[in-house]
Design a protein around this nucleic acid. Structure first.
Lengths: 188, 188
DNA sequence: AACATATGTTTTAACTGTCTAACAATTAGG
DNA sequence: CCTAATTGTTAGACAGTTAAAACATATGTT
């Protein structure tokens, strides 16, 4: 059945592979003067013919402007997608490294996979959550530090409770300083 | 007789689709007396021929014992994978619903996608993190309750800070009850 | 300009996961 | 026990993503 409405209505969701390419191109675009097939292949761990055929695909979807042997340029649509995915990637990476305290390299790989499965609604929740941890006087930096200890010394909630006094002092001084103004940091 | 160990060395990572089938079969196995092609098709939102060919695939990988027209049974290996994925699913679901406070149905769908990209190491971190929130005297139930408010009233850290006094009170009483069972100490 | 090297494309083919259509086995009811 | 409905399989097709091999273009060097 051939549709007459070529625009919005026909719109199918992009595959995660396509999203990956757009993110890669978006990043390369900011790193280099021009983006070439070779660069994309390297970044995506893929051979050049694969990039060639993907660019044809992206062209047909109006996500890049690409002519044989020329440089690769994202369209507005393509750049929007690339930027959105990169944003998700960064938030996830931050959560994995700063909150869950996972080693950067592992976290980066994981974020790369999760960025496609994370809905925008969940992303918003996650951002709120991280902001809340940072800004809530009950948690913040030192709380995360204790989580780090908790992780290191392996699953011992008793130890955490034994430190209540320390929490108390730190907490009071934190509240004091907050009550004398100082706006919170915001994620991304 | 085909050896398990031949697989070990050649061992390629399973696709996420295969993981999904194993999880589905594992769950069905606990819900019903016997698992049939039709059940799997329904659970996976897929047609029966797709299940047939997948079962052939799973058979060849030693993940199910299946003979035409018979019931489907997981091997030890298959059940292990199914169980592992279901576990990841449950943890993620818990995180999404209880921590990020996402609506069940959405969270369940999201968990379904993320369960394949979550490494075991990250899963462990996530479990630790959730445990820490529950057991640390600084956070726990009430802290999550405040996060809920924070979310509801939309991105307003100022509001959170305005409640510092409340936190302080709650926190103190929590500390007091803990202090009554532990010797006093001096802290920096 | 002529050649060599780097870069890019086309063609062909593989693999995974899905479907529809047609056929086959199993089971349930009269 | 025979037929009808249900369940399952096979065959063939297709969309996506990838790569190897062969070919084409661009770039740089002498």
């Amino acid at each position: 059945m051939i549709s007459h409405n070529i625009g919005r209505i026909t719109e199918k969701p992009l595959t995660s592979v396509i999203e990956d390419y757009l993110e890669a191109i978006f990043n390369l675009d900011q790193e280099k003067k021009v983006v070439r097939v070779k660069d994309i292949a390297k970044r995506m761990n893929v051979k050049m013919p694969t990039v060639s055929s993907m660019l044809k695909n992206l062209n047909s979807k109006g996500l890049v402007n690409y002519e044989k042997y020329e440089y690769v340029e994202l369209t507005k649509d393509g750049a929007d997608v690339g930027k959105k995915i990169r944003h998700k990637h960064k938030i996830l990476l931050k959560f994995l490294t700063e909150i869950l305290q996972i080693e950067f390299k592992v976290a980066d790989e994981e974020a790369c996979k999760m960025e496609h499965t994370l809905s925008s609604a969940t992303l918003d929740s996650l951002i709120d959550f991280m902001e809340f941890i940072q800004t809530c006087p009950r948690t913040g930096e030192s709380w995360l530090h204790y989580f780090e200890e908790y992780r290191r010394h392996g699953r011992r909630p008793e130890k955490c409770q034994a430190r209540s006094k320390t929490f108390s002092c730190e907490f009071k001084s934190q509240v004091d300083s907050i009550e004398n103004s100082s706006p919170p940091g915001v994620v991304e």
